[in-house]
Amino acid sequence: MLELIPLDLANLRRLAASDPVDLGGIEICEGALPPARVASHALAQLDIGTPSHWCAPFLIVSRNAILGTCRFRAAPAHGSVEIGYEVAESQRGQGIATAAVRLLLQTATSTGLVRQVVARILPNNVASSKVVSRLGFSKGDSLVDDDGETVVLWSIQVAT
């Protein structure tokens, strides 16, 4: 069984500082935690008052092991929210990302604030494109993101 557990503030700060996290003996698969820039982005969102469930990563946990993380990038705006996700390389190809994104979709829908969920995916990231396609996302236009990378915009309308 897979579950999403919010990353606590102390560990979010550790991750942003590239310090070791303390998750109480839970095994962390290599590459399961996001890079420091993701934690720093979440901390910046918290600083402007964004509720933690809309910006702090969720740990993807199964059998007392962290397999990856997923998150909302910010609070919904105009009924739309953006997601991000990553799974440790050793855990890929097992449906973990699909299950985690499905749980994020359920979380977003349950708030009553979200009508659309968006994911920005690099054009050559076939695996991530398959995840969102499998869940009913539609492929949209390509655009250049804030990092100067071309990404494909995938979106799904959700019932509120």
Rank of each mutant, 00 (worst) to 15 (best):
M1A: 09
E3Q: 13
E3K: 11
L7K: 05
D8T: 08
L9V: 11
L9P: 00
N11Q: 07
L12T: 04
R13T: 11
R13Q: 15
A17H: 08
D19C: 06
D19N: 11
D19W: 06
P20Q: 04
V21W: 10
D22S: 14
L23K: 10
G24T: 07
I26L: 14
I26Y: 07
I28F: 08
C29N: 08
G31S: 11
G31W: 07
L33E: 09
P34K: 03
P34D: 08
P35G: 11
P35I: 11
A36L: 12
R37I: 14
R37P: 00
V38T: 12
V38Y: 04
S40K: 15
H41V: 04
A42P: 03
A42V: 03
L43F: 13
Q45K: 14
D47L: 10
D47Q: 14
I48S: 14
I48A: 01
G49L: 10
P51S: 13
S52T: 13
H53K: 09
W54Y: 08
P57F: 05
P57S: 08
F58N: 10
I60D: 03
V61N: 02
S62E: 14
S62G: 08
S62P: 00
R63V: 01
R63P: 00
R63W: 01
L67W: 01
L67E: 02
L67K: 09
G68T: 03
C70A: 14
F72Y: 14
R73G: 02
R73H: 14
A74S: 15
A75F: 04
P76S: 06
A77F: 01
H78C: 06
V81N: 03
V81S: 03
V81A: 14
E82Q: 15
G84Q: 06
G84D: 08
G84N: 02
Y85K: 02
E86I: 00
V87F: 04
S90H: 02
Q91K: 14
R92S: 06
R92M: 03
R92H: 03
G95S: 07
G95I: 04
A97Y: 00
T98P: 05
A99L: 12
L105I: 11
Q106T: 13
T107F: 00
A108V: 01
S110E: 09
S110R: 15
T111F: 11
V114A: 02
Q116N: 03
V117F: 01
V117H: 00
V118M: 00
A119Q: 07
R120T: 05
I121K: 09
L122Y: 07
N124Q: 13
S128T: 10
K130T: 09
V132K: 04
G136I: 13
F137L: 08
F137S: 02
F137P: 09
S138E: 14
K139R: 15
S142G: 03
S142F: 01
L143Q: 13
V144I: 13
D145E: 12
D146A: 13
G148D: 09
E149H: 13
W154F: 14
W154A: 07
S155M: 10
S155Q: 15
S155C: 06
I156F: 01
A159I: 07
T160S: 11
